[in-house]
């Protein structure tokens, strides 16, 4: 994959939210939900974003879709900056990106029939006649593995997995190039989860889609992604090709995260000390490296300076002082 084309480029993206003060004398506070993130997404790949709740992964997805206005930074889609877009131009950009949401119960309008739900984005974005739209709805339902008569039914008549298929059909309705899937399978049972994951991978091959797959489940992310980025408190601490990242995690947080997953393995009983404490409040993140309060390898410098993402071998990037450029001696 040497001649990869960049589909989406994010440069120094920040999304801060002001916090209501108790009194006017208090300092102004902001939650740094997304704090200085730069990343590229290549055409046709799946970029997995993992992190615990509160790490800012959903905000990142929503900011890219312009559902949240970024505080600063640039988002380039096919080389074009999208912040300045408005009106017609924004519409045009929007029909190239779609989102699949986590909760298949609340993301479908209960008072609309499934056919109408899938048709609605086409009405807004595509110049198609009513008949053409109906044919396309049928095609889409078939693509996601639902029967044609689903069109006339309401969302409550479907199970969670089927609803998620409807959500995917809606996202595909306007032929997007890029889909952000925000925890699309976490509300589903395991046996259904794998059906939906397989469907998403099949659709990607067929329609040459690019995915950004947000999840807290490292197993699922590894399965579907090509590259994985690990987020902690609004920052990307490590990003790399999935095999490199899972087999040789560099950042202490990635290591702890991987070690914390319960595994089915009776040969070697692991006894890794789990991370202590909780995620610090994003309103008041630690100075320096955001992870130093929970890091087993914290050094004095970690609480003073903020590490930046630096390139390691195998195109793996890590933001940690343990790894200065080209130094792999520490593990």
């Amino acid at each position: 994959m040497s001649n990869r084309t960049v589909l989406l480029e994010i440069r120094n993206l920040k999304a801060y939210f002001p916090v209501k003060r108790k009194s006017i004398r208090e300092d102004k506070k902001v939650v740094k939900a997304v704090d200085d993130i730069s990343i590229e997404i290549y055409k046709g790949e799946t970029l997995g974003i993992v992190g615990e709740s509160g790490s800012g992964k959903s905000t990142l997805g929503r900011t890219i879709l312009k559902l949240i206005e970024p505080t600063s930074g640039e988002i380039l889609f096919k080389g074009e900056p999208i912040q300045k877009l408005s009106g017609k131009a924004l519409q045009k950009f929007r029909n190239q990106m779609q989102m699949v949401f986590q909760d298949p119960f609340s993301s479908l309008n209960p008072r609309m029939r499934v056919g109408e739900i899938i048709e609605e984005p086409m009405k807004l974005q595509l110049a198609l006649s009513k008949e053409e739209r109906q044919t396309r709805v049928k095609e889409l339902l078939e693509k996601v593995g639902l029967r044609e008569d689903a069109m006339k039914k309401f969302p409550h008549e479907f199970s969670g997995g089927q609803r998620q298929r409807i959500g995917i059909a809606r996202a595909l309705a306007i032929n997007p190039a890029f889909i952000i899937a925000d925890e699309p399978v976490s509300a589903l049972d395991v046996s259904v989860q794998s059906q939906v994951l397989n469907l998403m991978m099949d659709l990607q091959d067929e329609l040459e889609l690019t995915y950004m797959f947000i999840s807290h489940d490292l197993g699922v992310v590894k399965h579907i992604s090509d590259r994985v980025a690990v987020m902690y408190l609004g920052r990307i601490v490590e990003v790399g090709e999935k095999h490199a990242l899972y087999e040789n995690p560099l950042h202490p947080y990635t290591k702890a995260l991987l070690a914390a997953i319960p595994v089915v393995d009776f040969q070697e009983k692991r006894d890794v000390e789990p991370l202590h404490g909780d995620l610090p409040s994003p309103m008041d993140p630690p100075v320096g490296c955001v992870f130093h309060t929970r890091c087993p390898k914290a050094m004095p410098i970690c609480s003073e300076k903020r590490p930046v993402l630096t390139k390691q071998k195998n195109d793996q990037h890590v933001a940690c002082f343990l790894y200065e450029e080209g130094d792999f001696s520490v593990s």
Partner: peptide
Amino acid sequence: TIPSLDSNVNRLPSIP
């Protein structure tokens, strides 16, 4: 059907 960390299958077996 569980996606595990050390498997490298392309498609997960699923229960229809």
